[in-house]
Amino acid sequence: MNTLSDRSRDIGEFVSQPGDEMIICRCEEITKGEIRRAVHEGMFTMTEIRRYLRAGMGLCQGQTCSKLVKGIVARELKVSPADLEPATSRVPMRPIEMKVFANENEDEDE
């Protein structure tokens, strides 16, 4: 059984640490402490962390922080970062205005 999905696993209480105030997600300004706390609040997957905190959901879409967030979550869960499934990739990969996203080119005659 995949240890990561074992939600009954006790990873202990959240205890604040030096460095918790460090910004990790630059776009949404999410700190290391917030990410660590979220894990202790039951967010065991990258997708959950994303939805819970918005880390990696800002303008850059996690370009800068996803590896950093993964490292923090893995450490909190005491697993290797390689064992954590990355958050879901979905359209759009890059920031895009809604008006552009909705503007599908319907008839392309060239």
């Binding site: 359209v91 759009p92 990969m93 895009i96």
Partner: peptide, 20 residues
């Protein structure tokens, strides 16, 4: 900018103000 890629080898591309 390729903003999406699907299993059936379809891609979504943003150029200017439109999506193709």
């Amino acid at each position: 900018t390729v903003i999406g890629l699907y299993q059936d080898k379809e891609i979504v591309v943003k150029t200017g103000d439109t999506v193709h």
